[in-house]
């Protein structure tokens, strides 16, 4: 590219990036303002004084550490669940031939099309029967049973692995399980990481799950706790913004450091099928 093209690209990017980050900057700067300042000059980006105590106050106004530890349990558990179960299901859909496979796959994709508000009551009753009501298990266990989106992604990826690989392994005397565990899984690490990250972010942000299944405050994860915080402190914008920033920051860091792998994972997750 010549310098003219290059500077056009930079100018465009800078312009768009400013627009995209402005709301976030407003959130950040608002979280550091005093309540009086937020009301007086909501649009001034640099606060007059840096009110770090807003963060301390937000953390103490809710059982923050409890929420955070719940969220972490949830994230780790559900990432594990998704990676294990979806890879197995995807393997079955992608590499094994069995009666009704394509039909069942269509149904699976179909389940994505139905809004959760109607499916939640039967789901709720089902998990309640199993005795998981008001436990984090109610949110983690289902991920061990797979979800349509991740299965779809992984299936697409597995299908890009040449069939000869499996053939060679079969000749070497590996069982179907062996092929899955020893051959396919190690080849799919970037794709698994992608699915894992998607699930991590989803679990981090999940709001409807806790809403349905948890009723004890000391089991709430951050996303749900945040919503409750928002409704109880709706007149204290500085605290709301501080809480929202606290909530977002870990995901920002996670993405920032994992983006290389993440992008590689998506790229190789044969979406081009």
């Amino acid at each position: 590219m010549n310098w003219l093209q290059k500077s056009t690209v930079y100018a465009l990017l800078l312009f768009l990036a400013t627009i995209y980050s402005l709301p976030l900057l407003v959130m950040l700067s608002g979280s550091l303002k005093s309540p009086a300042e937020i009301q007086a000059s909501p649009n001034q980006l640099i606060p007059d004084g840096w009110h770090w105590e807003n963060y301390a106050e937000a953390i103490t106004a809710m059982p923050f550490w409890r929420y955070l530890s719940n969220t972490l349990v949830l994230c780790v558990g559900s990432v594990l669940g998704t990676v294990i179960s979806c890879s197995m299901a995807a393997y079955a859909f992608a590499r094994l031939k069995w009666w009704g496979r394509d039909w069942l796959f269509a149904v699976l994709i179909g389940t994505m099309l139905l809004p959760w508000h109607v499916t939640m009551i039967p789901r709720f009753l089902l998990l309640r029967e199993v005795g998981l009501y008001n436990t984090l298990g109610a949110l983690i266990l289902p991920t061990f049973l797979g979800d349509a989106f991740s299965i779809f992604l992984l299936r697409q990826f597995f299908r890009t692995i040449p069939e000869e690989v499996s053939e060679a392994a079969r000749i070497d005397g590996l069982s179907e399980w062996g092929i899955y565990w020893r051959i396919i899984m190690p080849m799919s690490v970037p794709a698994l990481i992608t699915v894992g990250l998607f699930q991590f972010v989803a679990a981090w942000n999940d709001f409807s799950g806790p809403l349905l299944f948890l009723s004890n405050q000391d089991k709430f994860p951050l996303a749900y706790g945040l919503e409750q915080f928002v409704s109880s402190y709706s007149d204290q914008t500085h605290l709301l913004l501080a809480a929202a920033t606290l909530f977002t920051l870990p995901i920002v860091l996670l993405f920032f450091f994992a983006q290389k792998t993440f992008l590689k994972g998506i790229a190789t997750t044969g979406l081009k099928d």
Binding site: I121, S215, Q228, S231, S232
Partner: peptide
Amino acid sequence: VAMPGNNLDLKFFLSVTGGD
């Protein structure tokens, strides 16, 4: 038990359906 937010009725129905 505090349940701020807009979901008190939803929670209530679930508890009724669940018999608790």
